[in-house]
Design a protein around this nucleic acid. Structure first.
Length: 152
DNA sequence: GCCAACGTTGGC
DNA sequence: GCCAACGTTGGC
C-alpha cells in the first residue's frame, strides 16, 4: 500500500465537506504528473493526507483513503465546466480521477509551519521549494509521524 | 526540439 | 496582492 498527500483549497473543497459527503471523486486535476500518480500508482486502500492549500494557515487537516481506482474525469467532457478539455473524447479520455473517502479529521491541525519545525519531516516533498504538485507520494515514515502529530 | 511568452499555484 | 517556481503553448 502507498501513501499520498492531496491538496485542496478549503474554500473550494474542505475536509469538513468530505466528512459530510463521505466520498468524493477527486475531479479537476489538470497536471500530467498528478494524473499519472492517480492513474498508475494509486490503489484502493492507499492512505491520504488531506492538505489545505491557499488557506490560513495552510497545512494538513486529516486523513482519507482511496476508495475507487482511477476513472475518466467527467468534467473534461462538459463544455460548461472550467475543466473542459476539447482534446478529450469518450474513447480517448485525457484526465482521470480517483474516489477518496473520508477517514478522520485530525484532533490537531498540522500547519505548514509546524511541519517545517519537525526535523524528521524536513525532506517531505510538500516542503520542497516550488513543490506545486497537488497529488504527491509520501513516505510511510512521514505519514506515521504526521499521524502522531495530528493526535491520532 | 528550442525557448520566450504566458498561465497557474500557493506561500507569504 | 505580490511574486517565485514551475508547467504549457506555440512560433520558428
Amino acid at each position: 500500500m502507498n501513501y499520498w498527500l492531496m491538496k485542496s483549497e478549503p474554500d473550494v473543497y474542505s475536509i469538513d465537506q468530505l466528512n459530510k459527503d463521505k466520498t468524493t471523486w477527486w475531479e479537476g486535476v489538470r497536471n500530467y504528473q498528478a494524473r499519472n500518480f492517480m492513474m498508475k500508482n494509486m490503489k484502493v486502500g492507499d492512505a491520504v493526507l488531506f492538505y489545505h492549500s491557499n488557506a490560513e494557515p495552510p497545512g494538513i487537516a486529516g486523513l482519507a483513503v482511496i476508495s475507487k481506482n482511477a476513472m475518466p474525469d467527467k468534467l473534461q467532457f462538459d463544455p460548461k465546466s472550467d475543466y473542459f478539455d476539447p482534446k478529450a473524447t469518450l474513447d480517448k479520455p485525457v484526465w482521470f480521477c480517483v474516489e477518496v473517502e473520508f477517514q478522520q479529521k485530525f484532533k490537531h491541525f498540522i500547519s505548514l509551519q509546524k511541519i517545517r519545525e519537525q526535523d524528521d519531516l524536513k525532506d517531505m516533498s510538500v516542503l520542497q521549494k516550488g513543490s506545486r504538485l497537488s497529488v504527491q507520494p509520501l513516505e510511510q515514515k512521514h505519514f506515521e509521524i504526521v499521524q502522531e502529530l495530528g493526535g491520532l
